[in-house]
């Protein structure tokens, strides 16, 4: 019996020692960099949402726990954030929403005004749309995008997609990117599915008048 144990340790001591060493190495690295990694995620959201809600100076979550909101028949936890301006007044709301795009998921940051009546626009957190076609949804207004500016000031409610129309007119009609109707539709569908339930929930919770 003792021979067996001895053999076992002879064979595997290196494995055990190095597991401990590697584990420690990882623990130290993780401890050192974790705050930075978490800050990066928050910064990324703030940069996108802050670019849409220019008056907002900082964002804070409306509740300690993400709100459970029913979207498309499923309860999904959503971390809705309130954008606060310099004097502490609500400048708008921002949240992350998700839908399926042409090939992969799309994840958007959506910002709306203080009354939750009009959109302040959306930004793309993650997408994997076709280069040169669907990925035009990623082009920001500042970079001369055609699609994103149509949402700045669009009403919160049901948006519709058209193939012909005037993109300069800001209303519930969104003009599709030519050659990328599916990607354009994906953004509209996602926004339609998420915006109104979130508004209702905020009202029900008494966070929004």
């Amino acid at each position: 019996m003792s021979n067996k144990i001895k053999f076992f340790f002879q064979e595997s001591w290196l494995l055990m020692v190095s597991s401990v060493v590697f584990g420690l190495l990882l623990a130290i690295t993780d401890a050192a960099w974790k705050p930075r990694i978490e800050q990066n995620t928050i910064d990324r959201f703030n940069r996108l949402a802050g670019g849409l809600l220019t008056e907002a100076e900082r964002f804070e979550s409306v509740a300690a726990e993400p709100l459970a909101i029913e979207i498309g028949g499923k309860e999904i936890p959503v971390d809705v954030k309130r954008g606060l301006d310099g004097s502490g007044q609500t400048a708008g709301w921002a949240f992350v929403c998700e839908g399926s795009g042409f090939a992969d998921k799309i994840r958007l940051v959506v910002a709306v005004d203080a009354a939750f009546e009009k959109m302040a626009g959306f930004g793309v957190l993650f997408s994997n749309e076709t280069p040169g076609f669907g990925d035009k949804i990623n082009i920001t207004p500042a970079a001369g995008g055609f699609y994103q500016p149509q949402f700045i000031g669009a009403p919160v409610g049901t948006l519709t997609l058209t193939k012909s129309g005037d993109a300069a007119v800001i209303d519930a009609e969104i003009v599709a990117i030519s050659g990328a109707t599916v990607s354009s539709q994906a953004v509209v569908t996602t926004l339609n599915a998420w915006m109104v339930p979130i508004k209702e929930k905020l009202k029900a919770e008494g966070l929004l008048k």
């Binding site: 595997s12 494995l15 597991s19 590697f22 690295t29 993780d30 960099w33 990694i37 990066n40």
Partner: peptide
Amino acid sequence: KPHLRILMFTLTIATFVTIADLYLKAFLP
């Protein structure tokens, strides 16, 4: 030990890959 060789390699590589991944997440998000 010959039969634990590949396991040791994988363990070593996975550790350093995790470190590289954490570095990128922290400094080049």
